[in-house]
């Protein structure tokens, strides 16, 4: 291990790290929005939309991100939809994650006993209040373990961005190995940066899982 090499590579890796984290979290935010919307539509069986949501969830849960990215980045331009690599990365991650989040939220909502919504109605809440102040918070707290697992999964999936030539951590490592053959240093830094990116999320996640057991209070 040559520390001079590590020092030299550091700025490149930091730049790649920032890009990876940025696109990763934009994608995750997007996946939460898509996931909640799809779960809502499927849970309340909104006509037409719930069918579309179901097809979307099955389609994206059963295909790898790499294939989805290739489709978005290389195939869509042929029918006139062109996006930058960064947009494609965030969108692909958001669509993949959305399908996983939707399943998580939906099973959270299904786990809430009917007595909760009935009580809410009996207390005089309208449907919207029932959803925003009873069902959604409870479903959210029940889905925390699934959300945490999905966030970690999605951050790991960012490693395939290099395939659509985004200059992420993988791309930088592969580039440096190819150019200077300092394989050990390049791989070591790759691992370190992924640890920096994921270990805090993993630890905070397990803490949140313990904290968020509000819906099961009293059991």
């Amino acid at each position: 291990m040559d520390f001079a090499v590590i020092q030299e590579y550091m700025p490149l890796y930091i730049e790649a790290f920032i890009l990876t984290v940025k696109i990763g979290w934009i994608g995750i935010a997007l996946s939460l929005v898509i996931g909640v919307a799809a779960a809502f539509v499927m849970h309340f069986k909104v006509p037409v939309l719930s069918r579309i949501a179901k097809i979307y969830v099955e389609l994206f849960r059963n295909t790898p991100l790499l294939v989805q990215l290739f489709f978005i980045y290389f195939a869509l331009p042929k029918i006139g939809i062109q996006m930058s690599a960064e947009t494609c990365g965030a969108l692909g991650l958001g669509l993949l994650g959305g399908s996983y989040m939707a399943e998580g939220f939906r099973s959270g909502m299904e786990a809430i006993p009917a007595s909760q919504s009935e009580s809410a109605l009996a207390l005089g809440m309208v449907k919207r209040q029932m959803f925003t102040s009873v069902i959604f918070p409870e479903a959210l707290s029940l889905s925390v373990p699934a959300i945490v697992a999905n966030v970690i999964f999605l951050l790991k999936e960012t490693s395939v961005f290099s395939a659509i030539s985004l200059m992420d951590l993988m791309f930088t490592a592969k580039d440096l190995i190819g150019l200077y053959y300092n394989t050990t240093e390049a791989l070591f830094m790759l691992v370190m940066f992924y640890i920096v990116m994921l270990l805090p999320v993993s630890l905070i996640g397990s803490y949140l899982e313990k904290k968020a057991r509000l819906a099961t209070f009293g059991e």
């Binding site: 970690i152 790991k156 999936e157 960012t158 490693s159 395939v160 993988m170 790759l190 691992v191 992924y194 640890i195 994921l198 270990l199 993993s202």
Partner: peptide
């Protein structure tokens, strides 16, 4: 295994 991407 949980925190290292399979790619890495």
């Amino acid at each position: 295994v949980r925190i290292m991407p399979q790619m890495v």
